[in-house]
Simulated assay, not measured.
Amino acid sequence: MRLLMLGGSGFVGRAIVNEALSRDWDVTLLHRGNRRPPSGATVLQGDRTAPDGLAALGAGAWDLVVDTWSARPSAVRDAADALAKRADRYVYISSGSVYADPVDHKAAESGVLLDGSPDDGDVPYPQAKRGGELAVTGAFGEERSLLLRAGLILGPGEDVGRLTWWLDRIARGGPVLAPGPRDLPLQYIDTRDLAVWALEAAVRGLSGPYNLVSRPGHATMGELLEACVAATGSDAELRWTDPERIAAAGIAPWTELPIWAPPGELHEFLYGAETSKAFADGLRCRPVAETVADTWAWLKELGGVSPQRPDRPVLGLSPEAESAALRG
């Protein structure tokens, strides 16, 4: 298989490239050169937001294009238009955020979608992903487009600061504010499981949208944080704290306490996606302990310094706020 990866040096893109290389595929990367790309691929440098940003592609042709772009949809439009006659299939890593609020999870992939346009410039993340979907289907048609609506993505290579923040915090040890309830169900996908399914689905010729995330309750908040304690080997003491007490302390879910959302509307939005379609077509999700342990091993290889995407806010609770909440 001849794969063109647009990007490929970051979190999800790198996992896809690594998986493709492990299958002995012929992999070409088009990226801006901000990070070192995986070895073994043909590397072309180009900034897709520039007027001539796709020039490095020349007259090349590919079996498959994979795109993780999450900014201005017009960049997806330009790439898809340029490749429509030079590639067989286009896989776009989209997001469950493209569904309109309130989300009807029972409708699965047929749910009501946000408005968006492939011609948009700088728009919020949900509209950017929806515009990207429309750009791909506009150029490649429904039959040659595969739209992967991912939820929370975790695993080695994470550069957003969710699981990595928890691992860093728990590795420091001591009393840890653990947001309850302990049995709160989570739903996410390991980036490597996403990569495996995406490439296998493309080879099989699957098309259309897929909610690509684990089943609801694949893990719990307790299982996740206990796996962090086990992986780091720290003396951290998880102090399970009720959502009401966390709210009273003014601590924000999802951002100050990454991954966590209290029971209610936000939790249902984040962790209630219907994923039967993807599982019927072969999705498999590894245990949370494996994701956590492998992410910690990867962080240690980096010297314990978590990478951070420059276009995303820094997540996590300050030590001062945590201490105050624990005292309260």
Results as ranks from 00 to 15, higher is better:
residue 171 A to G: 06
residue 75 A to S: 05
residue 33 G to E: 08
residue 80 A to C: 00
residue 105 H to M: 11
residue 91 V to L: 13
residue 66 V to R: 13
residue 143 E to F: 03
residue 164 T to R: 11
residue 158 E to Y: 02
residue 84 A to F: 04
residue 108 A to G: 12
residue 163 L to N: 00
residue 106 K to M: 05
residue 84 A to I: 03
residue 78 D to N: 12
residue 46 G to I: 10
residue 79 A to N: 05
residue 168 D to Y: 02
residue 151 G to F: 12
residue 97 S to Q: 05
residue 51 P to N: 14
residue 61 A to Y: 09
residue 97 S to R: 02
residue 120 D to L: 12
residue 161 G to F: 02
residue 170 I to Q: 07
residue 123 V to C: 12
residue 74 S to D: 06
residue 136 V to Y: 09
residue 135 A to M: 13
residue 104 D to M: 10
residue 105 H to S: 11
residue 42 T to K: 08
residue 91 V to D: 04
residue 84 A to V: 06
residue 95 S to L: 13
residue 158 E to W: 02
residue 89 R to N: 09
residue 142 E to F: 06
residue 56 A to D: 10
residue 139 A to Y: 07
residue 113 L to Q: 07
residue 148 L to E: 02
residue 98 V to L: 11
residue 157 G to M: 14
residue 70 S to Y: 09
residue 154 L to N: 05
residue 133 E to L: 11
residue 64 L to T: 10
residue 40 G to V: 00
residue 80 A to F: 01
residue 65 V to M: 11
residue 134 L to Q: 08
residue 34 N to G: 04
residue 89 R to A: 05
residue 73 P to L: 03
residue 128 A to V: 04
residue 32 R to F: 00
residue 94 S to R: 11
residue 62 W to G: 15
residue 155 G to H: 05
residue 127 Q to V: 02
residue 60 G to V: 12
residue 71 A to V: 07
residue 87 A to E: 06
residue 77 R to W: 00
residue 128 A to D: 03
residue 33 G to R: 14
residue 68 T to P: 15
residue 94 S to H: 07
residue 125 Y to A: 14
residue 117 S to C: 06
residue 145 S to M: 10
residue 94 S to A: 12
residue 100 A to I: 06
residue 58 G to A: 11
residue 144 R to H: 13
residue 56 A to W: 09
residue 60 G to T: 14
residue 114 L to I: 14
residue 123 V to N: 13
residue 77 R to C: 00
residue 137 T to A: 14
residue 82 A to L: 10
residue 164 T to P: 14
residue 88 D to I: 12
residue 54 L to Q: 07
residue 34 N to D: 05
residue 52 D to A: 03
residue 127 Q to A: 01
residue 123 V to R: 11
residue 86 R to I: 09
